[in-house]
Amino acid sequence: MKIIGLIVAILVGALLVYAAADFPAWSDPASPASTYLSPHFIEKTMEETSVPNIVTAVLADYRGFDTMFETTVIFSAGMAVFLLLRTFRREEPEARHYRHVLTGVTLRVKEGGELPPSDDFERIDSLWTPHDLIIKTVCRLLIPFIQLFALYVIAHGHHSPGGGFQGGVILGASIILLAISQDLRTAVKRMAEKLDALLCSVGVLIYAGTGALCLLLGLNFLDYSALASVLHVDSIMARSHGILIVEIGVGIAVMCTMIWIYNNVSSGGKYNQGL
């Protein structure tokens, strides 16, 4: 079976290499891709949308419908992980582990058991390793800057590489970093499960809602120039602002989906302890 798989893989690979020889040369100005639509985007994007980064304009404006369903795919992925993994019923009674901070003594408390009355206990994971001071401190110092950079990436997507997707992933990664460097419960305390799931769909709703608003104002779905009367700007700036609104929606949806997937995968759907 393995040999057949290897043969098939080599054959398909050889076919791919053979087909790749027919590609136009890299950055060939006479290639079909560079002569059909690209010149229009390169010449007209700035005057039609006033967005200097053509990639952002194409993604969120000219092909906004495509990007909307890309966001929906991300949302569905988070939903699928949630539906497959999340368990609300516990099979065996759960034992919690507590550590006395001053002495380092670890207690295992069974379901229904009680801790000795003291404030010096902290809850720990069952596979607990001593906290590394350097990792904890560095992560705590870095997370605000990571989040600030993510906001910059979302807001500055008009002018530089970046946008909702990348910024959202970086925002989500900052919370995931918190969950890894401290523990899952700390991260869930900051970003509760219900809020996370709610924001996930709110992000997609912002995108689709902007499109629907354009429809209500009398133009095509996702034609942001309709927003001119709402935003009190001319129709070109309205397209630029429309892209920003949509990017924020994408950012929220992607951030929350990343956190949602991580929480469900790392805790096996139980949300009690993570990596």
Binding site: G162, G163, A173
Partner: peptide, 13 residues
């Protein structure tokens, strides 16, 4: 832009 997405999604998360 693609490289940025790959770095954050592929290599990171």
């Amino acid at each position: 832009d693609v490289a940025f997405t790959e770095a954050s999604v592929g290599a990171g998360v």
